[in-house]
Computed example of a mutant assay.
Amino acid sequence: MIGFMAPQDIADRTTAAVDAAVGAGRDLGLDVTDAAVLHDVFSVVVHLAPAPVVARIPTVLPHYADPDSVARRQRAELDVTRWLADQGTPVIPPSALVPREPVRRGGFSMTFWEFVADDRGREPDYEANSESVADLHAAMRAYPGRLSFLDAAEPRFVTEGLALLDKRPDLLDPDDLDRARREWQVLEPYVQTRAAFEAAFPGIDLQPIHGDSPPANIFAGVDGDRYSDFELVTLGPVEWDLAALGPDLEAAYNRGARRNGQRQLDERVLAFVNGVGMLRAIASLALAPQLPALVDYIGPAVDGWRTMPFAGGMAD
């Protein structure tokens, strides 16, 4: 495929990220002799063994991202997870062996986390995970720090991603792109400002939320489940964290919400976040030259999106 990174280029990117993490870890006083890559998709996640520390290095990023903008988001994630850990919420916390701040090296901005052994024999239970997200939301409500409104929607990413796809009909059919642009004209104002959202959805409270499908980001540790990957932590409606998961998992969340005395999911807000989430997924196709697997991964989602109400029904 023309314009896509070759496998060797991707392997070189991974090697550069690992080398940067190993060098940064050693500079911070960690004993690193057997680094092992644990995950490599949008970020390279590497265990800096034998130190009980994991480095996460974002590597697949929009063209406008730079170490400063990446570090700002990383600081929010570090602050929220450290606070949650201090409250006794089961999260993967920042490593206590290094300063709790992003570290730059080799053109990357990285963070360091406590190593937690995973229970490899256990399959994810997404229904149980979705019910558990209500517990996470209950814990996050009291977070005292400041978070921006719906940063996780990444409106600049959607706008610029759709613009880039105008030149890539091999990635998205022009008719689909036309619909996506028209939907974004309807939906964008409600993710740009809190005032616009609150006017459209009166009575829907906003709070700190995970931001990136927490039922899919619960880590099965040998010592129990841990909430993880708060890279898109933001202020928003709880529905955002259940976007595109379907009625069964929504019902599971509602069971947890009733147990905690919280409000249940609002159907109109769910339709809205599902619409925005789909446009964000479609815009992600603009990253496919950096991560070719996205083409096959997002294709089925685009098929499903064609059957959804236009702009989540917000244009009615």
Rank of each mutant, 00 (worst) to 15 (best):
I2E: 10
D9N: 08
I10A: 04
R13C: 09
T15M: 11
D19F: 03
T33G: 06
L38A: 06
V44D: 02
R56Q: 08
Y64E: 12
A65E: 15
D68T: 01
R75I: 02
A76Y: 00
R82I: 00
D86Q: 11
Q87V: 08
T89E: 13
V91M: 04
P93Y: 09
P94K: 04
P94H: 03
R100M: 11
P102C: 11
P102T: 11
R105N: 14
R105K: 15
R105D: 12
F108V: 00
W113H: 14
R122D: 02
S130G: 15
H137K: 04
R141V: 15
Y143Q: 00
L147C: 03
L150R: 07
A153S: 13
R168S: 10
L171W: 07
L172K: 01
D175R: 15
D176I: 04
L177E: 09
R182E: 15
R182D: 14
W184P: 02
L187M: 14
P208K: 10
S213W: 15
N217P: 11
F219I: 04
G221N: 05
G224T: 09
Y227F: 15
S228V: 15
L232G: 00
T234F: 07
E239F: 07
L242V: 13
A243N: 06
L245K: 08
L245C: 04
P247A: 07
A252G: 07
A252V: 10
A252I: 08
A257K: 03
E267W: 02
A271P: 11
N274C: 12
V276I: 10
A283L: 10
V295T: 10
D296S: 07
D296N: 07
D296A: 13
P309R: 09
A311I: 10
